[in-house]
């Protein structure tokens, strides 16, 4: 129990020290409101970061399991080569599904670029086989076998398309984390300004404390406890409001694409209580630094 108290004293300062600083002042609301606003924004940045992470994983997973085999052959050999590829796929472990695309399906794929009246039979289009693999699929082995037995067949695992998508999602996630860092930095700056104002306003009190033998750490604790608790309380309020706001965002859906599914899901909700704790930590470090620096200036 004593150890716990000592730990809390070290983190928050002691109540006696807190008493020596006058309780009122405009910095009270400044700190609380800033922390609340920053926590509200942090919840959204966190939600964005988590959502883009999920999106990147989803794209990576779904595209990683899908592949297309393109068969380029003279029209008279096309059916035979497609059949040969189908036979190879049937005998390959890890192929969950393999299906040649119908002409109408190929026409539908090309329609956005070439229009609806496409004379498909006059174009030397390759035949496409859609393959869904499992984790056991030996892609390199399949490629080599296709090259040996069906020279006109090319295995395309969508890497060219997948990489930029996953990269975009990863960058969004990084931006979300950067936003969180900026929010923490802004909170630290605001708390530092508020603490500096309070320190300057309480200079006579600090002088008395020094005259009766207070060390710098004691004076700093008198301020850090106050700002840590204010920032944590404000951040708790902002986190609750942010959590409620994200809870009312639309659920994830395929139709909504990227703009849906921004809310928290499952265990991700457990991250929210960390926001006020982190805000308190930021305020603690910012106030302590401001206090020790001010005390050196006041000498």
């Amino acid at each position: 129990m004593n150890r716990l108290r000592a730990l809390l004293d070290a983190a928050l300062g002691d109540r006696q020290a807190d008493r020596v600083v006058p309780p009122a002042g405009h910095t009270v609301w400044l700190t609380v409101l800033t922390a609340a606003a920053m926590a509200f924004l942090a919840v959204f940045a966190l939600a964005l970061s988590l959502a883009t992470g999920r999106l990147a994983d989803r794209w990576a997973d779904s595209l990683a399991q899908a592949a297309t085999i393109r068969v380029s052959a003279p029209p008279e050999q096309a059916d035979a080569q497609v059949a040969a590829v189908a036979a190879i796929l049937a005998a390959t472990p890890g192929v969950a599904d393999a299906r040649p695309l119908e002409e109408t399906e190929q026409a539908a794929l090309l329609e956005p670029w070439l229009g609806p009246d496409l004379p498909l039979d006059t174009l030397p289009l390759p035949r496409l086989i859609e393959v869904t693999g499992t984790e056991d699929l030996d892609v390199e082995g399949l490629r080599q076998r296709l090259a040996a037995e069906v020279p006109g067949a090319t295995y395309d695992d969508h890497t060219r398309w997948r990489a930029p998508l996953v990269q975009a999602a990863d960058r969004l996630r990084t931006l979300g984390l950067l936003a969180l860092s900026l929010i923490a930095g802004t909170l630290a700056a605001m708390v530092t300004l508020a603490a500096q104002a309070a320190l300057a306003a309480n200079r006579p009190v600090i002088r008395v404390l020094r005259l009766v033998g207070a060390r710098d750490a004691y004076v700093a604790r008198a301020f850090t406890r106050r700002y840590t608790l204010r920032a944590a309380a404000g951040a708790a309020l902002g986190t609750v409001l942010g959590g409620i706001a994200t809870a009312f965002l639309p659920e994830a859906s395929a139709a909504g694409g990227f703009l849906t599914g921004l809310g928290f899901t499952g265990a991700a909700w457990l991250l929210l209580p960390l926001v006020p704790l982190f805000a308190g930590l930021v305020a603690f470090l910012a106030t302590r630094r401001a206090a020790l620096s001010a005390l050196a200036r006041f000498e």
């Binding site: 008493r19 020596v20 309780p23 404390l209 009766v212 033998g213 060390r215």
Partner: peptide
């Protein structure tokens, strides 16, 4: 050199507190 928002008892006890 007192701290005006503290009581006399608290002011006298300041050296103990610090």
């Amino acid at each position: 050199q007192f701290i005006d928002h503290l009581t006399i008892r608290e002011n006298v006890a300041l050296p103990l507190m610090v």
